[in-house]
Amino acid sequence: MTIELFLNGEHKKLTAQADLALSQVLQLECRGVNPGCGKGYCGCCTVLLNGKLTYSCQIPFFSVKNQSIMTVEGIQTSNIFSDILKGMKRAKLDICDYCAPARTLSFYSLLKRADRPNNQEIQEVLSSIHCSCTHIPLLNQAIFYSLEEKYTRLHG
């Protein structure tokens, strides 16, 4: 089955079996999608589907026709990504290699939609990925530093 979609802003035609999970198809296209548990528990396969954080292992490939999908590769040139990078570096965050792309994407979605996210919004983003490699207060700190970097960039 061939499906047309927008992957990281580019119009693409992907061919795969219709019943495959989106994560299984995307892992061949993008290195930022790591299929983890395959059951929607770990969150390592998180992508932005039409701007919303989604576990791609829970989405069948056929259902993303003409939809917009963003993986971590799609945000690498954005200013918000460099804010996240600086924020993580300041917080001395050392997350594991496997959850790092999904974690970055989740931070991106938060920073993109809110300048001053409330605690609930932050907790929501943090709880979307169940990897225990990093202590939660450290991740919280990384988010605050990233928000600070974003604020400095925008308002000087």
Binding site: L28, R31, V33, V72, Y98, A100, P101
Partner: peptide, 22 residues
């Protein structure tokens, strides 16, 4: 941590057995 390494990590450039397909 080296910034370049951190960037690679965040972008999913760290390779796993399944990533090296041909």
């Amino acid at each position: 941590m080296n910034e370049r390494y951190l960037k690679d990590k965040l972008l999913g450039k760290i390779r796993y057995p399944q990533n090296n397909t041909s």
